[in-house]
Computed example of a mutant assay.
Amino acid sequence: MHNEPEVAVLRYGHRPGRDDRMTTHVGLTARALGADRVILPDNAGHSMETVEDITGRFGGPFEVELTEALNGVIRNWEGRVVHLTMYGERVQDVEADIREAHAEEPLLVVVGGEKVPFEVYEGADWNVGVTNQPHSEVAGLAVFLDRLFDGRELDREWEDAENRVVPMATGKKVVPADEE
């Protein structure tokens, strides 16, 4: 995945207090499922800190940044833009085209929070729906990234991790990353 063009996730909108966990989970999901970075609204500093902390403890590379120019990120993106929305084309109908485009150029995945203005729909190369039903934007992002990477993200090796989770049928085991 690291020899492919960049995949960045833009969290469009954040209501402090109401969206804190959801915005954090957008960042964590982007990291865990293969994106290279997440761009958060400038009022989501707490979410940024949490995602950076997890990246430090469980590995990267993964970048987190804040911006006050959400529309500018979309407008100035040098690559293709996917907007995840329940009103979009079915993911299963457009995933091959998106994968093909991503083989050649960077991809920005826009994940809405509050009501997304029509300008975002117009600025996207694809408006993509996962089920075309109301559900969590985190679930939509997870399904989309898994489809984009064909499941390769599930075997990713993490660099510079302090800790490593040991897969187990039952129980929880976290060990220092350098321990076998």
Rank of each mutant, 00 (worst) to 15 (best):
Asn3Tyr: 08
Ala8Gly: 10
Leu10Val: 10
Tyr12Thr: 03
Gly13His: 08
Arg15Trp: 00
Arg15Thr: 14
Gly17Tyr: 04
Arg21Cys: 02
His25Cys: 01
Gly27Thr: 05
Ala30His: 05
Ala30Ser: 09
Ala30Asp: 01
Arg31Ala: 11
Leu33His: 10
Arg37Ser: 15
Ile39Pro: 13
Asp42Arg: 09
Gly45Arg: 07
Ser47Trp: 05
Met48Phe: 00
Met48Leu: 14
Glu49Asp: 13
Ile54Phe: 04
Ile54His: 02
Thr55Asp: 00
Arg57Cys: 00
Gly59Cys: 02
Gly60Phe: 02
Ala69Gln: 13
Asn71Pro: 00
Val73Phe: 08
Ile74Asp: 07
Ile74Asn: 07
Arg75Cys: 04
Gly79Pro: 13
Gly79His: 11
Val82Tyr: 06
Thr85Phe: 07
Gly88Tyr: 05
Glu89Trp: 07
Val91Gly: 10
Glu95Asp: 06
Ile98Thr: 04
Arg99Leu: 09
Ala101Lys: 14
Glu104Val: 06
Glu105Cys: 14
Glu105Thr: 15
Leu107Trp: 11
Glu114Ala: 14
Glu114Tyr: 08
Val116Lys: 01
Val116Asp: 06
Phe118Gln: 11
Tyr121Ala: 10
Glu122Arg: 13
Glu122Pro: 00
Gly123Lys: 03
Gly123Asp: 03
Ala124Asp: 01
Asp125Cys: 03
Trp126Thr: 00
Val130Lys: 02
Thr131Ser: 14
Gln133Glu: 15
Gln133Asp: 11
Pro134Ile: 09
His135Phe: 11
His135Thr: 08
Val138Glu: 05
Leu141Tyr: 09
Leu141Asp: 05
Leu141Gln: 09
Val143Glu: 06
Phe144Tyr: 08
Phe144Asn: 07
Leu145Phe: 05
Asp146His: 14
Phe149Met: 09
Asp150Asn: 14
Leu154Arg: 15
Leu154Phe: 15
Asp155Ile: 11
Asp155Asn: 14
Glu157Pro: 04
Trp158Val: 06
Trp158Gly: 08
Trp158Ser: 11
Glu159Ile: 09
Arg164His: 08
Arg164Glu: 06
Val166Tyr: 03
Pro167Phe: 09
Met168Trp: 00
Gly171Thr: 02
Val174Trp: 01
Pro176Arg: 12
Pro176Cys: 02
Ala177Asn: 05
Asp178Ile: 00
